[in-house]
Amino acid sequence: MITPEYCRLFASYNAWFNERLFSLSAALPDEKRRHGASCSLHDTLQHLLWGDAHWVKQLVLFDGPEPSHLYPTQQLTFEQLRYQRKSLDNALLAWAAKVDMAFLDADASYLGSDGIKRVLTKSLWIVQMFNHQTHYRGQAATLLRQHGIDIGVTDIYWAPGAIRRETIPA
């Protein structure tokens, strides 16, 4: 379904996009980051961190150590959130650098919040993790735009290392 190269590309894109979101979000005063009719930019960034930490624990580390320092149990400050985001992105980059097809092709079970145990290939769960990231980064980007901040181009091919070669027309 997917390859180790796919994992490396998305881990890199994830880190690049998250750094952009946090750099641009830092320009807002804390009260603006925390203000929102239904969900604030701060809450969205925190949910993205929590969701990614959850997926990393369930889908990437599997039987590895519990990443308890990644699970926010309270409202984090923006600085704490940014630090933990960077730590998690670094963990994903390190994982992606060494993932192989045997890992991706293996089955993995996951107990959902609905109490149902699901068994799928690890590759499909990894796609879900990256899809979750894309969804919530899109929400965060929209919230930044609502604050008048242009986040620029976010297409994956603009991420560092994504383009293999570029030809400039004559």
Results as ranks from 00 to 15, higher is better:
68 S>L: 11
104 L>K: 08
23 S>G: 03
72 P>C: 10
98 K>N: 02
19 E>Q: 04
44 T>F: 04
164 R>C: 06
128 Q>C: 10
148 G>H: 11
81 L>T: 14
115 G>S: 05
84 Q>P: 00
7 C>H: 01
48 L>F: 02
161 G>A: 13
122 K>A: 11
153 V>I: 11
133 Q>S: 07
159 A>D: 02
14 N>P: 10
131 N>H: 12
66 E>H: 12
33 R>Q: 14
78 F>D: 01
87 S>V: 14
97 A>W: 03
48 L>V: 02
81 L>I: 14
113 S>Y: 05
169 P>C: 04
66 E>P: 00
33 R>N: 08
103 F>E: 14
157 Y>I: 15
93 L>P: 05
149 I>E: 00
169 P>S: 10
56 V>D: 08
154 T>P: 13
58 Q>N: 03
79 E>L: 10
12 S>C: 05
32 K>P: 04
143 L>E: 04
47 H>L: 07
3 T>K: 08
92 L>Y: 13
166 E>P: 06
151 I>T: 15
161 G>W: 12
26 A>I: 10
133 Q>L: 06
112 G>F: 07
116 I>T: 15
156 I>L: 15
6 Y>V: 09
87 S>D: 14
105 D>G: 08
156 I>S: 10
37 A>W: 03
24 L>I: 08
67 P>Q: 01
21 L>R: 00
86 K>Q: 09
65 P>D: 15
102 A>Y: 03
57 K>E: 07
34 R>S: 14
133 Q>T: 00
113 S>M: 06
127 V>D: 11
154 T>Y: 02
164 R>E: 09
42 H>G: 11
62 F>C: 14
109 S>W: 01
71 Y>K: 08
29 P>T: 15
93 L>Q: 05
127 V>T: 13
103 F>D: 15
97 A>Q: 11
116 I>E: 09
69 H>F: 10
67 P>L: 05
91 A>H: 09
137 R>I: 00
1 M>C: 12
